[in-house]
Design a protein around this nucleic acid. Sequence first.
DNA 1: GTGTAATGCTATTGG
DNA 2: AGCATTACAC
Length: 802
Amino acid sequence: MSDYLEGLNPEQRGAVQQTEGAVMIIAGAGSGKTRVLTYRIAHLMQKGVDSFNIMALTFTNKAAREMKERIAHIVGNTEAKNLWMGTFHSIFAKILRFEAHRLGYPSNFTIYDTDDSKSLIKAILNEQGLDDKVYKPGMVYNRISSAKNNLISPEQYQADVYIQEEDKSNAKPKMGLIYQIYNERCFRAGAMDFDDLLFKTNILLRDFPEVLHKYQDKFKYILVDEYQDTNYSQYLIVKKLAAKYENICVVGDDAQSIYAFRGANIQNILNFKSDYPEVKVFKLEQNYRSTKNIVGAANSIIANNQDQLEKVVWTANEPGEPIRVYKSLTDNEEGGIVAGNIFETKMNEQAHNKDFAILYRTNSQSRAMEEALRKLNIPYRIYGGLSFYARKEIKDLLAYFNLAINNKNEEALKRVINYPARGIGKTSLERMIVLANENSVSPWDIVANADQFKVQLGAAAAAKMSEFANMIKSFSIMLKAQNAYELSSHIATSSGLLKELYNDRSPEGVSRYENIESLLNSIKEFVDSEDEIDTLEQDLQNLEQGGAVDTGTGELYNNTNRIKTLDEYIKDIALLTDADKDDPADADRVSLMTIHASKGLEFNYVFVVGLEENLFPSHLSLNARADLEEERRLFYVALTRAKKRAVLTYSETRYRWGNLVVAEASRFIEELEEKYVEHAVDKRKQQAPTYLGMNRNPFTQERTEVFQKKEKPQPTVNPVVVPKGNFKKVSAANPVKNTTSDFVADDPALLQTGMDVEHERFGIGKIVNLEGGVNDIKATVFFQGLGQKQLLLRYAKLKIVK
DNA sequence: GTGTAATGCTATTGG
DNA sequence: AGCATTACAC
């Protein structure tokens, strides 16, 4: 049971066993950090620390989940379940929901995502008559975000002479006012943005000593992963919570600090010693992940940075092969080289798709890679970019859900009040909002009480308005009475949204419809899942009652008959990212992601693409040394993801904004110590088709096209892939691009009641009834998850499954 | 009020 | 190139 200590090196073991007091673990890339964290928590529990008293803050929810599983293997599932583990945002959102009333918020407050926030900012700019070309919404958002991350309230912001000067000299003197109005509007809407989750937690701990003491006593042991990427707001939360027992353990690597742009403060790790003078420091310097060449190359890069803690990462692993560098003429060719390389490696080294990662600086670089991979039929999955929950149709439906849960949610109201179109136009809506602002209430209060507020509306518009309000009210009433699936399908149908999407026959429309389907399916899964109720919620309640915590599997948690409601499903959805999803169907795919998103991951083969000046390092970071050093750390992170092989590519030309731009190799390539590098030539290039007689000027597009035409695989003759089972799941990274083209219906005359059939949009269903004449057959088909549909076979195509 | 065509902006990185 | 906003016709 305790032989887990055996497999650790002395430094790692020290870090695990030093359970008391302040501990800082400087963990180089690939040094077994996760193992140490996992064992440390397990060790705490074996020493008798109650799992309810441990909080571990991780960088992603997925990391927390995985760590929990590993701990469960050591100490057992029941105990592991009670650990408080997750991201700052999700952990403190949970606490905030519990304590919201103290701050004047409802416990079912909405979490605004970035889109919501920006849309609100736009609305405010409009109302204030400010030019959104001067006050760019994204820029305003960032400014507000950074104020919040530094715990500067709107009042402080406007009172701060230095900030005011800064804004004035940037010709944006109204920034503070916007911030103030933005905050008021969020409050009135019962909404918090991402930064509020941390800001309000700070307020809570600052203004309510009894709350502070409660959580100080609860979280006797605190662990923070990726400490180098915490911002001031997070830093202070941790510091306050740890102030009583000072059992705080932070893990990080200054060399991997890559989130300064969103407020992360590398000083948090550099200054940890002055905050806790008694701190015990452990340095994990042995890399178990990568070859000597990779470690050496990475070290040679980071040596170019001035700001760093003293640390020597080394490895006992094999030398391995040099870092390969490929040059291409165009970004498409770059994709071809990478895809071709993956293809070959798979053949020659029996590698799996999941062993490969393609990492890039900006999301927009993924396209060329995707196309190249598709050509070679290599399955891939994109992480990041547009997340599933950020899709328009998903956001629309979620907006209905959110509005039902929290009527005051202004952004949700604006989104759906006239979608699908129900005759409540822009002018009416604007009038509502003006009135709401005049009365300091939320727009919903006006919509729901139009008569009281004497809204000037035509009879027709007024009727539509109250019809809409009644519909939303009816949803709200059903919240606790129906389970999440019943209610969500009801909303999807009776809002008219499903019909609206169904009527769109374009491939995109079909895809949108299927995405909605996929969302409803996942809600169904949520409802059907046996999983325990949120023990943490229970934990908080016990804490409130001051009672002893039941750590067993006792009746406290026995809740099998409980209805799983929609608000539970929706709660933290804004906090989910692609990285948090684990779809078994994605198990063996090449991973495509930004380097930022790759933090903490590892792959046998890593391709870092687009190593060009102005792209990586980004043109926006060339002016300040600190920014450039962050880019360099980013490159360090990219390289150290690789276990066996790292390949770097750059292109001499690249499309940006639809224009061909000339590029030169990144300075980072030169900074690599020469002995670790091999400048490779792609095979395809050795046999460069001079005979084509084309202009070989790399800056012309034609050449690339010829090159590509040659590469194009023969169109597959007949894709005899018969989709089986249930609906095709549409993941964010794997949207259905076009499903209309290949769908061939069977002759309606062959259909019989009881048959399983497939509909191109609804998927598989069972024929319940057939009626009507030969040319006018009407089929009633039951589709799992959608219910019965009447289909006129003159129009609807049905394929017989069995 | 609604739907479509023209215009204009964007693409660091993300919870 | 792709998307969101705007302008304009109905």
